[in-house]
Design a protein around this nucleic acid. Structure first.
Length: 718
DNA sequence: CCCTCCTTGTC
DNA sequence: ACAAGGAGG
């Protein structure tokens, strides 16, 4: 029906057709690529789903759920404006784009920038390909206040610490671009020869869990906008006082919206700045400070992009090489206890259960559980990153990499590696009345506040009165704090020793680089070689240490034990009404089945293995109206009821398929772009990665596009 | 007014 | 653990 209309209306010879390629910019407001397309004439809006290209960064279940909702929302908006969203399933984005261009007779391609390492490479290549085919390609900044290459120190060098970076952003001599209004009307391009594919983002097994998410969150740019307004007019003014409270009432909850670009950071920035002016004029000091603090968490999001652009491998390799020599504890039992919220530290456990149930976690709590993971359990940081990637609604490669590096002490301005965050102390800071713990750990609900963050110290009668039986219905601490401190000292000392030895070897000129693990102790090699032995030990819960960064445990290595363990966990679970916890068995078996067959299935579960978390502003971010899954009151007495009510969300998102699992057994293998990464390993001195080489991608951009010209010129379109 | 001790926050 | 900022001498 629309065909004749289209050819008559939109395709007159003096109007060019533009492809507007949506990615993580799922909004019509302040979308420069869309605006450029509209200005140039007719528009074909397209979204391409090519998750295989993401390799190990295949989106987790909750991310895919959000994406599907958000795309739907965007499509509705586009329809109201006169067009619709063309959706394509693809294994190769560039060729699909070319196909779309050709079948719609488009002459332009517009899109907005992404800064994660995979996109940087892919977009660059795609741009070259399409340009060589005679397509005019322009790209824009829709995600940041300032492009990473715009913000430099007085020597023209990129910043290597956050505070100076952010101060510079706040004092640039020009303002961030003013947000664009949504187009009034979009002239549709003719897509009759380019039909949409139906995109599938969830499989049957995931539907139930996803339905629960829908009760708590409303994806889509209009909802994002509402949330923003509600936050700015509501909790923002109290932000400085409330931001460290563990529950989400005072946070914006905007982070998933920001991740998918449903919300323009420039709009957020502008709005908050205006509020700040008002409050400053009124002499409202705390309101003014609240704005600063909130903007700072926006700044961290900016900084995560900035770091990724300047150091694209930071998601898989610590920026400071020393962490490669940390003797990680390879213990999947620890890993499992952490995931399930059964470490014996209430704040940690409450956080892990909230994460599981809601797909969200307060920034503070992210720091606490991640720090516990790395420093107390000493599990390889990338395992934790992978888990966050799979479970967080706002999973975001750049922010997550920043967060984990921050707590692992591999940023110049990060936390010291040897400083343990004590969950007990943190607990009384961000959950002084124990409400948060009681909500998520009903088994501790009747414990007095005095003991709520350290039940192991509570006198026996108190425990009894509260119905707590340590070691039975709530675990004893998985590792004692004093022991953890000592262990960490040793590990760090060992790490520095090895690092020094490696550097010495390097300076002697005998070794080419750190990529070669032959410098590492023999024991490491033998462990690599003898997986059987290692598994035997693990079964008996004896920790094995391994150096070098560790990839996530392979599918096969965890499959065996899980089943027997599940049985015991299940029996415990049956006896109390505690929140359900991930039970990997189902999905592992299922996805193992899939792995053996259908490689290119649309269903979303293929190879999700990855790193990344979203520390980005858990503070900043996220503002949704009724965000809680369990809205039942969390009065101490009946919190178990409220948890049951919440239903909880128990399907851990998919593990690696066979096609990828090989990558995770061997450290440093694979990851899509490891080729260029491996060529750029450098050992640098501690706290001095300012001298790290600019990476390949950075150079590619600056040479082939001209560092300052390229994307600026793009912006001058129209 | 300055010095010191205590409190507070750390991307 | 440590630095910065505030209170108090």
């Amino acid at each position: 029906m629309s065909r004749m209309h289209d050819s008559g209306g939109s395709c007159s010879s003096n109007q060019s057709i533009s492809i507007v390629w949506f990615r993580r910019d799922l909004r019509v407001e302040d979308n420069p690529a869309l605006a450029a397309g509209v200005r140039a004439g007719a528009v074909v809006a397209v979204y391409i789903w090519a998750p295989e290209e993401e390799g190990p960064f295949y989106p987790g279940r909750v991310s895919r759920w959000w994406l599907s909702q958000s795309l739907h929302h965007l499509d509705s908006s586009l329809r109201r404006l006169g067009t619709s969203l063309l959706t394509k399933r693809s294994l190769d984005t560039a060729s699909t784009l070319l196909e779309v261009v050709q079948s719609t007779a488009a002459s332009n391609l517009f899109f907005n920038h992404l800064y994660d390492p995979l996109s940087l490479v892919r977009d660059h290549q795609m741009k070259e390909l399409l340009t060589s085919q005679g397509v005019t390609v322009h790209s824009f900044n829709a995600d940041l206040l300032y492009e990473p290459w715009e913000v430099n120190d007085e020597n023209g060098q990129p910043f290597t610490t956050f505070v100076p970076f952010w101060n510079r952003c706040l004092s640039m001599h020009y303002d961030p671009a003013t947000p664009l209004l949504p187009p009034k009307r979009i002239i549709p391009g003719d897509t009759s020869r380019c039909p949409s594919d139906i995109l599938i983002f969830e499989d049957e097994s995931e539907k139930g869990s996803n339905a629960l998410l829908a009760r708590a969150w409303s994806p889509g740019w209009r909802n994002a906008d509402k949330s923003l307004t509600a936050f700015v007019n509501g909790p923002l003014i109290e932000y400085s006082a409330n931001r460290r409270k563990a529950d989400s009432a005072s946070t914006s909850l905007l982070s998933p919206h920001l991740h998918f670009g449903e919300l323009s950071v420039r709009k957020v920035f502008q709005l908050v700045r205006m509020k700040q002016l008002v409050w400053a004029n009124e002499g409202n000091k705390s309101g003014e400070e609240s704005c600063d603090l909130f903007l700072k968490s926006l700044g961290l999001r900016e900084y995560s992009r900035y770091l990724c652009f300047n150091h694209p491998y930071s998601h898989e390799r610590p920026l400071l090489a020393h962490l490669r020599f940390f003797p990680w504890v390879i213990d999947e039992g620890y890993f499992k206890a952490w995931r399930q919220g059964r470490t014996g530290y209430p704040l940690v456990d409450a956080g892990m259960r909230e994460l599981w149930a809601t797909g969200w976690l307060h920034d503070r709590i992210r720091v606490v559980v991640a720090s516990f993971f790395v420093k107390v359990l000493q599990l390889p940081w990338r395992w934790g990153m992978k888990y966050f990637w799979d479970t967080l609604l706002d999973a975001d490669l750049e922010s997550d990499a920043l967060g984990w590096q921050y707590i692992s002490g591999t940023l110049p301005d990060g936390r010291e590696l040897d400083r343990i965050d004590n969950p007990q102390l943190e607990g009384y800071r961000c959950d002084p009345n124990g409400e948060y713990v009681r909500r998520w750990l009903p088994e501790l609900a009747r414990l007095p506040t005095q003991w709520i963050h350290h039940p192991w110290d509570a006198p026996e009668p108190v425990l009894q009165a509260a119905g707590v039986e340590l070691g039975s219905n709530y675990p004893l601490p998985i590792v004692e704090m004093d022991a953890a401190k000592a262990r960490l000292q040793d590990a760090v000392a060992e790490m520095w020793q090895l690092e020094a030895a490696s550097r010495a070897a390097l300076e002697n000129g005998t070794e080419e680089g750190l990529g070669d693990s032959s410098e590492l102790p023999q024991i490491d090699r033998s462990l690599e070689a003898d997986m059987e032995v290692e598994h035997e030990q693990l079964t008996n819960n004896i920790s094995v240490r391994r150096h070098q960064d560790q990839m996530v445990p392979s599918l096969t290595s965890s499959l065996v034990r899980v089943e027997e363990e599940e049985a015991s966990v299940a029996s415990v679970r049956a006896s109390d009404s505690r929140a359900e916890v991930p039970s990997p068995t189902d999905y592992e078996l299922q996805s193992h089945r899939e792995a053996t067959g259908q490689a290119a299935r649309h269903t979303a579960d293929a190879d999700a293995d990855a790193d990344a978390v979203a520390f980005r502003g858990a503070n900043v971010t996220q503002q949704l109206s009724p965000v809680r899954l369990d809205h039942a009151e969390h009065s101490a007495g009946q919190s178990s009821g409220s948890l049951r009510e919440s239903g909880v969300v128990p399907v851990w998102s998919p593990p690696p398929t066979s096609s990828c699992s090989g990558l995770f057994v061997n450290d440093d293998a694979g990851i899509t772009n490891s080729g260029y990464l491996d060529r750029h390993l450098h050992s640098r001195r501690r706290m001095n990665w300012g001298q790290l080489p600019q990476t390949t991608m950075y150079l590619a951009f600056t040479t082939s596009y001209g560092r300052t010209r390229s994307w600026e010129m793009d912006n001058a379109i129209g």
